[in-house]
Amino acid sequence: MARNKPPELLPGTLDLMILKTLAVGPNHGYGIARRIKQTSGDVLHVEEGSLYPALHRLAKRGCLDSEWRSSESNRRAKYYRLTRKGRTKLKAQTRNWSQLTTAIDKVLSARTAEKAATKGWA
């Protein structure tokens, strides 16, 4: 099956995506994976298993709370919920990310302008 390799996640971005997903409301691991896939327009294919160490680490740091309860399929599932600390972290990381992407965008667009100028001179 010929298919383009999905882009790899940048380090630290998985935490940001988990926090953002849970900002909508509590969800279990499978739900979080499905939502990331949907909202990224099927571009970001996270190896689903890698979500769990990230979830557990965030819970350990106090960014998430967890709780066992019945899922929509009537099975017992572990639901994660954003804590106040998690919300603060999400804000900070979102801001960082915006600054980073803006800066990278600037760098990328500057190179393009340079190229155009060089061509004009020649």
């Binding site: 279990h28 691991g29 499978y30 689903e48 769990y52 899922s71 572990k78």
Partner: peptide, 17 residues
Amino acid sequence: AEIDDELTFHIDQATRE
């Protein structure tokens, strides 16, 4: 047991989908 339950739930859900 909790880790097993959590991961099994995920794999079962994905299989069903």
